[in-house]
């Protein structure tokens, strides 16, 4: 039973970290309508930033600043935000498909840079030598994992509350207004370009936060962590959970990550031995089928966005929804 508990804590930690990332993307896509196809670049900037800032000295590449952990994490978030600001300035005026591909390109270039620039981040070997905070005091057993999970969970809840507030604020209404009809918003004297950039950078900082926690959890990051698969996974979580709904985003993260890992587990357990070697491909076929099936059955996600047309609190059904 301890084993099951230990695994569930581990699973929930990964899922919570991914949920934070999905929340960041939800601000960009769900609330603002920005099709960020390069999620993994900002996630990666957070992870690399945190580990390089907080790690011990490594020969051959940048690092060894030994910054205390909370500052290192903030540094990682700042790295993601800075990158988002530059990328945003260059690309945000593009619409949907074009924006998606351009940001996707940013992510590929990011991975490429991390893989090749050994002086920067160790090249393909990745960044190691990071000591998890308080590991010396707590050891690295089950206790550490539980505490780490609680911290991640607290950060997830804080992020959720922050975004709920933001979305309910006048700024949040402005985001939706721009998403729905940019010209109308503009005619009311708002600057869509500035608002979009703000939302893009904020969402990317949250992605960077998730990346920083991810890097901390594994105490390691390498170019293999920033491949396009992660972008796809995070998007799938948002779409299945329900774009525009923060609770849907969190739910989607747990559900998809659960399905992803459970399908591998189930195949290794129940598939006959001769078929074991093919389970990798079979699993991908299953994952593809789940996504396609979901979009045919319930395209708006399991917990769809609840659009509020009138003022807050004016209808009883609204209160009930909270």
């Amino acid at each position: 039973m301890i084993g099951v508990m230990s695994y569930l804590v581990f699973f929930a930690t990964t899922a919570s970290i991914l949920a934070i990332a999905v929340l960041g993307l939800n601000l960009q896509w769900g609330n603002t309508g920005l099709f960020n196809g390069g999620v993994v670049a900002f996630f990666g900037a957070g992870a690399y930033g945190t580990l390089i800032l907080g790690g011990t000295s490594q020969e051959g590449h940048l690092g060894g600043f030994g910054v205390i952990y909370p500052l290192a994490l903030l540094g990682g978030m700042a790295a993601a935000g800075l990158m988002a600001w530059i990328v945003g300035l260059l690309t945000l005026r593009l619409r949907h498909d074009y924006l998606a591909i351009a940001t996707f390109g940013v992510a590929v270039a990011f991975e490429n840079l991390m893989r090749n620039a050994e002086w920067l981040a160790g090249g393909a070997k990745g960044v190691r030598g990071f000591e998890r905070p308080l590991r010396a005091a707590l050891g690295d057993g089950f206790l550490y994992n539980i505490l780490f999970f609680l911290v991640v969970l607290a950060i997830l809840i804080a992020t959720y509350l922050f975004l709920e507030r933001l979305v309910a604020s006048p700024f949040g209404r402005l985001l939706r207004a721009i998403r729905e009809d940019e010209e109308a918003a503009q005619s009311l004297g708002k600057s869509p370009a500035k608002v979009r950039l703000t939302a893009f950078v904020t969402g990317s900082v949250i992605l960077g936060l998730a990346g920083g926690l991810y890097g901390t959890f594994y105490a390691f990051v390498s170019p293999q962590d920033v491949l396009p698969t992660l972008t796809f996974q995070i998007w799938a979580m948002l779409i299945v959970g329900g774009a525009g709904n923060n609770r849907g985003a969190i739910f989607g993260a747990f559900l998809i990550w659960g399905a992803w890992t459970a399908s591998g587990w189930a195949l290794s357990r129940f598939a006959p031995i001769e078929a074991q070697l093919y389970t990798g491909s079979v699993q991908f076929v299953l994952i593809g089928s789940v996504i396609v099936g979901m979009l045919m059955w319930r395209p708006e996600g399991l917990l769809p966005e609840r659009l509020v047309v009138s003022q807050r609190g004016s209808t009883p059904s609204n209160k009930q929804g909270e």
């Binding site: 699973f11 990964t14 390498s222 293999q224 992660l230 890992t261 591998g264 290794s268 990798g280």
Partner: peptide, 24 residues
């Protein structure tokens, strides 16, 4: 007990953790 890593660190780590904790 064989698990696929999909060459994805997250997936590999999770599979390893499941093997250690659940399969012992």
């Amino acid at each position: 007990v064989l698990r696929d890593t999909q060459v994805d660190p997250k997936v590999g780590v999770d599979a390893a953790k499941a093997l250690v904790d659940l399969e012992g």
